[in-house]
């Protein structure tokens, strides 16, 4: 684990029309960690994710992944860079015309020249790794439950054994048991595949359970980065409300009263 950050964001400015979403945002992600990005609705968590993977061109600022700029890069370079990360969107974003197996095979098919049988076998391993049953392989996304779609989306994100996975609210909309299982899965695969995980989430349980560090987005910047304990101790109204609010683990009777206000 080198000290050089695997993702380095400096002075990021993102605007939509006259709305400024990020204004001079800085963030470092270390190799091999699970970083949780939290923030209120509309603080640009997903926008940050999309900027880092190059789906959005920020107005200003530098984004480096693996020490290379994502923004000022030619197509070949970007392609090579892109191979080294995987993205899972909120609802899996599976291709609805393809089966789960074909979805997981899609990145392999696009990037590599592999034998059909081998590709199917590797896709099968990935699908099993994310805990989907074998029969799901030949199912279409519309035939799967929300939780299974997320798992399949995760399987597609790790199809090429990327070094970084970006997960956009992986546990949103899952029942607590399913969400806990998904957390466990992320942690387990992070260890066995040596992943760096960039996790956008609202799930306090996820943050507690698997995140090494937490970055809080507020006031158009990264307000603070640190461990869960550091966040709990931080003295900022929003952060305090978030980590000590009625839904947080440390819910107190005082907080309960606040909810009914």
């Amino acid at each position: 684990m080198t000290d050089e950050p695997i993702i380095r964001v400096r002075g990021l400015v993102t605007r939509f029309g006259t709305t400024v979403v990020h204004d001079g945002l800085d963030l470092d992600v270390k190799r091999g960690e699970i970083i949780g990005v939290v923030g209120g609705s509309g603080t640009g968590k997903s926008v940050l994710l999309r900027s880092i993977v190059g789906l959005l061109k920020p107005a200003e600022g530098q984004i480096e992944v693996f020490g290379k700029s994502v923004r000022d890069t030619d197509a070949d370079h970007y392609r090579a860079l892109r191979r080294r990360w995987g993205v899972m969107f909120q609802d899996g974003a599976l291709f609805s015309s393809l089966t789960v197996r074909q979805n997981v095979e899609a990145p392999m098919r696009e990037q590599l020249d592999l034998d059909d049988d081998l590709r199917a076998l590797l896709a099968g391993i990935k699908v099993r790794m994310v805990g989907l049953p074998d029969r799901a392989l030949e199912n279409y996304p519309s035939e799967l439950s929300g939780g299974m779609r997320k798992r399949a989306g995760f399987a597609r994100a790790i199809a090429l054994d990327p070094e970084i996975v970006f997960l956009d609210e992986p546990t949103a909309g899952l029942d607590p048991i399913g969400a806990a299982a998904f957390d466990k899965l992320i942690k387990q695969l992070q260890i066995s595949l040596g992943l760096t995980v960039f996790l956008v989430t609202h799930d306090l349980d996820s943050l507690h359970a698997i995140c090494d560090r937490i970055a809080v987005l507020a006031d158009k910047k990264v307000l603070a980065v640190g461990t869960m304990q550091e966040m709990m101790d931080l003295d900022h109204p929003w952060v305090h409300e978030y980590f000590h609010g009625p839904r947080a683990r440390a819910a107190t009777p005082v907080a309960d009263r606040k909810e009914t206000d």
């Binding site: 099968g124 099993r128 074998d134 695969l189 260890i191 066995s192 595949l193 040596g194």
Partner: peptide, 19 residues
């Protein structure tokens, strides 16, 4: 250690023999 873990993880998820 990391390699052992990965090999174990893959070993647990191999396709069934009768596939």
């Amino acid at each position: 250690d990391a390699q052992t873990q990965l090999i174990a993880a893959v070993g647990d998820n191999l396709p069934p023999e009768d596939a």
